[in-house]
């Protein structure tokens, strides 16, 4: 048992080279380190929030290669060679992304705790389906929980952003 415990606590370091918000990062992580902790505590990007911690609420949503994942339950080494987007990387040249702008204009948030995850999930949706029906939007977004807005204004915000992005494209 004693030997097993020793082996258990030996640190194992995994080199992780990945792109974070468009910039290449080379870090080392241990196998058990979670992506959310690495991004928040090591890299200082606190947009993604720890809330339910069980992949249900969506507050920790990050995009990995454009697809949403729960950073609270993603091992950090899994982003080796991949591209990670956090809410901090969404605005370009100081200009807010149409989704961010729409959430402001349509009152898509109140306390704002769920908003980074909400906006990133919505981005993944619109990248895959630029013209979603309201039913498709609700199906995609049902894993992101908001305790303030009652969702109506979130849906309006995403629909408005979708329209703007289609015009732009």
């Amino acid at each position: 048992m004693a030997r097993a415990m020793t082996r258990h606590s030996e640190a194992q370091s995994i080199p992780v080279s990945f792109t974070l918000n468009g910039r290449l990062h080379e870090i080392e992580v241990e196998p058990h380190e979670l992506l959310l902790d690495v991004v928040r505590d090591q890299l200082g990007l606190t947009g993604a929030k720890r809330s339910c911690d069980v992949e249900v609420c969506g507050a920790c949503t990050l995009l990995v290669d454009g697809r949403p994942v729960s950073a609270c339950t993603t091992l950090a080494f899994e982003v080796r060679g991949r591209s990670v987007l956090t809410i901090e990387g969404l605005a370009e040249d100081g200009k807010l992304h149409p989704l961010q702008q729409a959430f402001i204009e349509h009152g898509g948030f109140q306390c704002g705790f769920c908003t980074p995850g909400m906006i990133l999930a919505a981005k993944a949706l619109l990248d895959e389906n630029p013209n979603p029906s309201e039913a498709e939007l609700k199906h995609f977004m049902h894993g992101n929980i908001c305790r303030c807005t009652g969702y109506k204004k979130i849906i309006e915000s995403i629909m408005a952003a979708a329209k703007k992005m289609r015009v732009k494209a």
Binding site: E55, V56, G58, T61, R67, P68, V69, S70, T74, A121, A124, H139, F140, H142, G143
Partner: peptide
């Protein structure tokens, strides 16, 4: 499969 958990769980 379209209705397993949520979009993030289905992704991984």
């Amino acid at each position: 499969e379209q209705n397993v958990a949520n979009v993030r769980v289905r992704q991984v």
